[in-house]
């Protein structure tokens, strides 16, 4: 019951959903749409469980005054505040949108902007042209970067933008397609393993 029933449920759901793709009948289309809605309904409970888990972890930190417990107060206050405002107000209400525009949006944008510095230091370590393939990687990225800024076009008399376009439209497309095919085969194989009960890590340990 503890392990066999979940495997059976996974197999039945996966088998029916795979089968419906090959049967162009209205009833199977409805079944597909219903199963998608099921996922979304279960999803709200999964999301609630995740948020409840965050609350419990941080409540525990506050209760026992663990290290940096003050930040847990900030987290819980902002979580409850944003949720309360969003439920009382609407998702397009002025307070909710103000909180989004002046807290979440600037923090998210700055966090990604911060990556510009770390990506530069990572590039320094990764791109030291020690081998032929590292040199190719370095050259391709330099050409694409220089081809996308005005100064690159000025110093190369328009060569960098053209070279960048060629790299992006041909070798890059070929590489992406080869990777996509590998990803497709890997995803289908992994899904098949889950469906047949070979891959069981999603069940956790007993």
């Amino acid at each position: 019951m503890k392990r066999q029933l979940p495997i059976a449920i996974t197999f039945v759901c996966a088998f029916i959903l795979t089968l419906q793709y090959f049967i162009p009948h209205r009833s199977f289309e409805i079944m597909y749409e219903v199963s998608n809605i099921w996922l979304q309904i279960i999803g709200i409970f999964a999301l609630s469980m995740g948020i409840l888990s965050i609350i419990l972890v941080h409540y525990d930190k506050i209760k026992f005054k663990k290290e940096n417990w003050g930040f847990s107060v900030v987290l819980l206050a902002s979580l409850f505040g944003m949720t309360t405002v969003g439920l009382i107000d609407t998702e397009s209400g002025p307070v909710f949108v103000w909180l989004y525009n002046n807290i979440l949006a600037p923090i998210s944008a700055t966090l990604f902007a911060l990556l510009a510095f770390f990506i530069a230091s990572a590039a320094y370590r990764a791109f030291r042209a020690r081998t032929v393939i590292a040199t190719i990687l370095l050259l391709a990225s330099i050409i694409v970067m220089m081809g996308r800024v005005p100064i690159g076009s000025i110093i190369s008399f328009g060569v960098f933008p053209k070279l960048a376009d060629i790299l992006i439209n041909y070798p890059n497309v070929a590489a992406k397609r080869a990777i996509f095919m590998g990803v497709g085969m890997g995803a289908a194989a992994t899904a098949l393993k889950v469906m047949l009960g070979i891959e069981r890590s999603y069940m956790g340990s007993d």
């Binding site: 029933l5 039945v12 899904a191």
Partner: peptide, 20 residues
């Protein structure tokens, strides 16, 4: 595990033909 099995079942069932 039962709801997780439903999520995985529906997810993998939809993923196989779509990935291919």
């Amino acid at each position: 595990r039962y709801p997780i099995a439903v999520i995985w079942g529906i997810g993998t069932g939809a993923a196989i033909p779509l990935a291919l």
